[in-house]
Simulated scan of single mutants.
Amino acid sequence: MMITDTHTHLYSEAFDEDRAEMMTRALETGVSRFFIPAIDSSYTEAMLDLEAKFPDYVHLMAGLHPTSVKENYKEELAHVEELLAKRSFCAIGEIGIDLYWDTSTLEIQKEAFRHQIQLAKKYQLPIVIHCRDAFDEIFEVLETERGEDLFGIFHCFTGNLEQAQRAIGFNMKLGIGGVVTFKNGGLDKFISEIDLKHIVLETDSPYLAPKPFRGKRNESAYIIKVVEKLSELYGVTQEEIANITTQNSKDIFSI
């Protein structure tokens, strides 16, 4: 069974003590494809080091996370452009809008989001969207950029059925992770109404660990709990969940 983790921060300091062991656990679980989102320039070196250590399994994205959109965001965007000009990446991400931590930066978050969507179009890459307390704002930007060249993943999808269908309408897959296992997460109430062809798996590790690890450090091996939950909700085998979602990830990333 081949499982794909489409969103995991394996370069995080949370793994500095046991990164090799953590990767071994994931590989033994069947996870052999790891897609690594960017945050900002302060993590670039750690991401490149991670790729050098695990070149057969790790695929890097380039991008500026919305919570890192600060006064120097134009310099950060220039760094993203510089990286894209030098070498290939699998996606532009994670990008988007986050109004949970700071609403005062909304306008520059929107500007950075739109700019990076246009970079993705230029390089014919998918985007990986971060959305927190910002569905309306995200959809507003996507509407202005709608087109065949706009596609990707709505990372850590936690919206409702209507929002899920709208996201899919923008050529987005839904990134489903630990939240689907939460008692009050809400996803379990409707996710089986979404065709599996629109779903990819993720952990967002070291964050959002699934039950029974909720509240602890997440890691890619725990994605099996997401596979188990989706198998239960859709009424299909775990192998089918793994196979379909991995194929969906291949369709998005072309890897």
Rank of each mutant, 00 (worst) to 15 (best):
T8I: 13
T8R: 05
L10K: 11
L10D: 08
A14R: 13
F15S: 00
D18Y: 10
A20G: 08
M22A: 15
T24P: 00
T24W: 04
R25D: 02
E28T: 11
E28K: 13
E45C: 12
E51R: 15
A52E: 15
P55S: 13
D56W: 08
V58F: 03
S68I: 06
E75K: 09
E82K: 14
L84D: 07
K86Q: 15
K86S: 14
F89Q: 02
I95W: 01
L99V: 08
T103G: 13
T105A: 15
T105I: 11
Q109S: 03
E111G: 06
E111H: 06
F113M: 07
Q118S: 12
L119S: 05
K121P: 09
Y123G: 05
H130Y: 06
R132P: 04
V141H: 06
V141F: 08
L142I: 01
L142V: 02
G147R: 06
D149Y: 03
D149C: 04
L150F: 09
L150E: 08
G152D: 00
I153C: 03
C156G: 06
C156M: 03
F157A: 03
F157N: 02
Q163W: 03
I168R: 01
F170A: 09
F170R: 08
N171H: 10
I176M: 00
I176H: 00
I176K: 00
V179L: 11
F182P: 02
K183Y: 01
K189F: 05
F190Q: 01
I194M: 08
H198N: 15
I199C: 11
L201D: 11
P206G: 09
L208Y: 10
L208Q: 07
S220W: 08
A221F: 12
I223P: 02
E228R: 08
K229T: 09
G235Q: 09
E239C: 12
E240Q: 15
T245Y: 05
S249A: 15
S249K: 04
S249N: 09
